[in-house]
Write a protein that binds this DNA or RNA. Structure first.
Lengths: 214, 214
DNA sequence: CCGCCGGTCAACCGATCGGTTGATGTCGCG
DNA sequence: CGCGACATCAACCGATCGGTTGACCGGCGG
């Protein structure tokens, strides 16, 4: 069997080195490259495909300081012809962008504190075209899908995260390119779903339910 | 010159592997071990010292999921006889624990997105007993030290904790057996000291500065 | 094809919050 | 003693939030 070619995308040199070291320890896996942001990832995927050495799996960090973000990069890569699988790599299993990433075509999901064995399994599953979600994450996603009324939408979680930073509605509106009216509408829905009646309590509840962290 | 022996402390296997790979690429540096939490770090430092192979530098992550935290571990290690230098490793240069860590005896400071060269320099500086703070961080620390810690009073912290649960002023007043007016006065002082201008931001700031948890 | 859900926006109004000024009392420290 | 730090309360007003009603649109599923 031919080797699985992997591209690493993470803005932290340390993490790239760590993944490279880990993956190269595994037989059948070859790290074809590592880049620091989404745009470079897209370029690298294209280049390697053009060279006749296409990668089968992209390990993509969601949190990237600057440049193209992970979700956009995932969408762009998955829109190429004969695209590689994209495995999302993130620090928190509460990350609201999980859903966005999966919708963008990510085929799997990994927490950064995953043990090497889990990373290896995920890469190999992805290379076989299987989706491989971490158990907790899969459960969370399933929960979202199965009970749409009791759980917050991706947009609502996104709002909640800005809320937790202490922004007033006006700034949240600006940040999300929507009107203040819309922000208020979302907030009402959030209060409803969380069973509270003000922003501060919403944050407290959301934190307690691990919908947001930090 | 004999090699610099380094101990890695980080709860993420990926990061440990990355640092190990990076550091072992440098001549004169030897990674003597890597552990996942503070308690294990203390034990490992002791063990290696007993074996006559003491580490000169500990690379210590501040954010660790469970077990002994980085600040406590730093303090404990620096209290040993003939202790190694401790280099703090963290993701955010805004981390309030920086100050605590430096007070606990940390001799240096590194951001996780630092390039390999910077990491190497920091380790070598630390091994020579020099403190090596990243420029931005050093500036931040100086700023903090110059402006005497405008710390909150016990009463204000008490209020902050109720605030974080989502109570409106009226209920906080009832809870503390004071008038709503007094609650507002306290809040103004809290906003002042934290450099914010609304309750939600105050909670966010207080949490970030570890004034309140959860 | 029609209904529902999610996301968007507007207008309105009462409730709450943010900020100010000013006042009183207590406690500890030089 | 006098000063400062802390805690307490009041009154006031503009800004923001909370809650409602109603509306439009796009997508997805029955």
């Amino acid at each position: 069997m031919t080797e699985i070619r992997v591209l690493l995308v993470d803005d932290h040199p340390v993490v790239r080195a760590g993944l490279r070291a880990m993956l190269n320890d595994f037989d059948g896996v070859w790290v074809a490259g590592d880049v620091a942001d989404g745009a470079a990832a897209v370029a690298e995927v294209r280049k390697l495909a053009a060279l006749g050495q296409p990668v089968q799996v992209v390990l993509m960090d969601l949190q990237m300081g600057e440049g193209m973000d992970g979700v956009t990069a995932t969408r762009t890569i998955r829109a190429l012809e004969d695209p590689p699988q994209v495995l999302i790599l993130t620090t928190y299993d509460t990350d609201a962008d999980i859903i966005a990433a999966v919708e963008a075509g990510a085929g799997g999901y990994l927490l950064k504190d995953a043990p090497p064995e889990e990373i290896r399994r995920a890469v190999q599953s992805a290379a076989r075209g299987q989706t491989a979600l971490a158990p907790e994450v899969a459960a969370r996603l399933m929960g979202r899908i199965s009970s749409p009324t009791t759980s917050l939408s991706a947009r609502e979680i996104q709002l909640l995260e800005l809320l937790a930073t202490g922004m007033p509605n006006r700034r949240i509106a600006k940040e999300l390119f929507i009107s203040e009216a819309t922000v208020k509408t979302h907030l009402v829905h959030i209060y409803d779903k969380l069973g509270v009646d003000n922003r501060t309590a919403a944050i407290s509840a959301a934190r307690q339910q691990r919908i947001i962290r930090r």
